[in-house]
Structures are given as C-alpha cells and as structure tokens.
Amino acid sequence: MSVVLETRGLTRRFGGLVAVNDVSFSLQKGELLALIGPNGAGKSTCFNMLMGQLKPTRGTVHLMGDEITGLTPRQIWRRGVGRTFQITGTYASMTVIENVQMALLSHHGQVFNILRYAHKMHRERAMALLEMVGMQAQAERHCAVLAYGDLKRLELAIALAHDPTLLLMDEPTAGMAPRERIALMKLTADIVRDQGVSVLFTEHDMDVVFAHAHRIMVLNRGELIADGNAEAIRNDPRVQEVYLGGGTLFNAQDEGEHA
C-alpha cells in the first residue's frame, strides 16, 4: 500500500507548554486510523497542524510524498484533504441537497459566478452522495429540522463532495446516541473499503474505536505512546494506565458484541 499521510517529528509549543511533542506516523491508502487519548492529550492540536489551522513549531507534514507544512487550510483542501468537525457546520436555512450542492460548487470553483443557478447544478452527484450516506430520502428537508445524527451524516456527504484522498474526522460521533455512533463509523468503514479513502479520526468512545479502526494510535500529554492493532493497544500497559489506571481497556467479549 502507498503512504497517503506522513508526519515527521511534529511538535507544537504554546509558550512553555508542549501540546504535541515529536509525533511521527504514517497513514496508508484505504486505512482507517484512530487517534485516541485522554482530554488534553493533544489530538485536536495535531489535527489542526495537519489541516493548516496551526503551524508546527517543529516537524513536517507530507501528503502523497509532498510536503504541505505551512500551507493554508484551503490549499490543503485543494490537494484532496477533507475534514469533519466536532460541531456540525451546515447551512440551517438550506435543504440537505442544497448543502451538498454548495460543496460541489466549491469543489468545481463555481461558487462566485453562478449563484442564480446553483440550485439546478450537480443535483445528480449530490443525490448520489446523499444515497451513499443514507440521506437521499431527506434531500429536500431543511437542515434546521434534522436530528443531530442526520446532520453528522450530511456533514460526511459534504466532506466527500470534494473526492478527498484523505479525510480527517475530529470526534465524528460526539453528541450522538450509542447506536448512532456505531452506525456512522460502520458507514465510514464501508466508504473506506469501497472508495479507497484514507481516514484519520479522533474518538473518545472505545467501542467505536475497537469495532472499526484498522489501527490505533494513542497520545498522552502530547506524546505518541502506542501504535498498533486493537489487541496490541488493548493489552498495552501504558494505555491501560492512561485510561483506567491499570485496568483492562476493552475485553474480547465486548469486542464481539460491537463488531
């Protein structure tokens, strides 16, 4: 498999505080990689450096072999990196399909010159994306009346409108009911498998992580302390100490229930 994303010695300081310290990892094509850790571990800071919201104090970020360190979020987005956020950012006054159409218009560089005709454009592709995330039946509903779980699925469709090579998902299931969390990450795993998109996501729900991630990385106090498959992470004493003070992080019986 080819390497889609690679960081080398990624570090970010805020004055005397080291939020992320010498983090190096790679993400393969078609891989679903989880980045976990307790609150304050540095996950969001790491994400913000990958997407250009923050510049690293030291270290580099590479996308498909090219260095993207220091590029703006829009420049990185144009290179094929999508992102979803902890808090959804859809247009509440627009319908579901109009939100996806706006993303497609942006992807094609058409936002500023054809707004009068925007509602007629890219409808077929927008509907295909909504079908992919199970939202086609709600295409004409306004986002203001959607349930939170549906907004999260719509946000995923919007991110996919750019045909990304890499998708960064910052706590994609935050605020969702347990059943909705499992459903959204199963949907994401299916997209990874079917579309070949690489996904890096942060998550606090260990059921979601162990049920769907191909590989798991653990951050603690800004440092990468573990990187491996579910079994390796589950049995790593450093990870157990971080999460449960030495207890078992997740057992095999529970994993079978959520697979």
Rank of each mutant, 00 (worst) to 15 (best):
R221Y: 15
D227I: 08
I76D: 02
A126P: 02
F201C: 03
L54C: 14
T90D: 02
G247K: 11
V239K: 00
R141W: 14
N229P: 04
L187F: 01
R234D: 07
G16D: 14
G40S: 00
D170Y: 02
F25S: 02
M64E: 15
G246Q: 00
A183N: 06
M132E: 13
V199A: 00
V133N: 08
G80D: 10
I87T: 01
C46M: 14
G40W: 09
V3Y: 13
D207Y: 06
G245M: 05
Q101Y: 07
T202G: 06
R125P: 13
V81D: 01
A189L: 06
A157H: 05
N220P: 00
T72K: 08
E124Y: 08
V4F: 05
D150A: 14
M64W: 14
R153K: 13
L168E: 00
R179G: 14
H122C: 03
W77M: 12
A252E: 15
R181M: 13
V100A: 07
E255V: 12
V239C: 06
G9H: 01
L244M: 10
I182M: 14
L130N: 02
A177T: 12
N48C: 05
V4Q: 05
D236G: 09
C143S: 12
L187V: 09
A232W: 11
D170L: 08
A183K: 01
M206Y: 08
M121S: 11
M176L: 14
N48A: 03
E241G: 06
M132H: 03
E257R: 15
I216D: 03
A41Q: 08
D190Y: 01
N229Y: 08
H119D: 11
R83I: 07
L184N: 06
L154C: 12
G175N: 04
T173Y: 04
Q240S: 02
H62V: 06
G222Q: 10
T57M: 01
V23D: 04
W77R: 06
V209F: 08
G65L: 10
E6K: 12
E257D: 15
N21L: 07
A137T: 14
R221T: 14
D66R: 15
L104H: 06
E67C: 10
D22V: 05
M127H: 09
F85L: 04
R238N: 06
I233E: 10
N251T: 11
A118C: 12
I36E: 05
T7K: 04
Q28W: 13
H107Q: 15
I191G: 03
R215E: 02
R83Y: 12
F201L: 10
L50S: 09
F47N: 13
V145Q: 09
